[in-house]
Simulated assay, not measured.
Amino acid sequence: MIKFNYYIETDRLVIRPLEREDYTPWITEFENRFPSQHKYDEGKIDMSVCTKDWFGDLVDNHQRMALDDKVYVFGIFRKEDNTHIGSIDFSTIMREDFQWARFGYSIHNQFWRQGYAKEAVKAAIILAFEKLNFHRIEAHINLDNTPSVRLAESVGMQFECIRKGFIYEFGEWTDHLIYYINSNSSFGI
């Protein structure tokens, strides 16, 4: 089977697709999460359905989506000990003359305020431009998600607009801030 295996490294991190062998570091850090810190932090979640077989299916699904150019999911791992810090994903919105994607990021809350999110997002943006060949990347952020806004701005993303009634969540259509960066942008990497 052809395998999607793009990755990028920073001083402290490796950002790469999940592999079946990642089950233990992956499940361990989900189980080590602190209770929810705010509205957009799931905190501790029930991982009882997440068996090794379930995880293998997840890895296979991530591979299929990447090979179909739909969604690229990357695990964030600490280099020194292979600890799973979180994840980053890119969803293709449109190719052709646009080369446009949405991206999301999630860091386990026990690793917050250590610079991992900024380091990982900066590197992942480079990977998206240089390996996935996207030209435009957008982050869709809830209006009151200040930590996510700060992160987007800290990596050089620019505020573009508020999209009204944009995403259905929390039982209603919600507005989102749109932050973007283009491949020809200069952002201090």
Rank of each mutant, 00 (worst) to 15 (best):
E31D: 15
L58H: 13
L127Y: 03
D41A: 06
Y168D: 10
L151F: 00
H62N: 04
K131S: 13
G165Y: 14
H38T: 07
S186R: 13
G86L: 01
D68C: 14
L151A: 01
D60N: 05
I27R: 00
R136Y: 08
R113N: 15
T51H: 03
T83R: 12
L58M: 15
E130P: 07
I126R: 13
H84D: 10
K164H: 14
E42N: 08
L13I: 06
I125A: 01
G86R: 01
I189H: 15
I45L: 12
I178N: 08
R113F: 08
R136G: 04
W26H: 02
F111A: 01
A101W: 01
M157W: 02
T24G: 08
P25T: 00
D97W: 14
S36E: 10
V155D: 00
G115V: 02
A139Q: 08
I189W: 15
Y116G: 05
A117D: 02
Y72D: 00
G86Q: 03
V49A: 10
L18C: 05
R12Y: 13
N142Y: 10
T92H: 01
V121N: 01
E160M: 07
E9K: 06
K52E: 07
T24A: 08
T28R: 02
F166D: 12
I181V: 10
D53I: 02
N145F: 03
E169T: 09
C50N: 09
L58I: 14
I88A: 00
E80T: 09
F98T: 04
R113S: 15
H108G: 11
Y6V: 08
K3D: 14
F166M: 11
I107W: 02
R20A: 14
R20G: 13
G104A: 06
Y23T: 01
R64Y: 12
H108Q: 14
Y40H: 04
W54C: 06
F134Y: 09
G165W: 13
I141R: 03
N82S: 10
N109C: 03
A123T: 05
E119C: 04
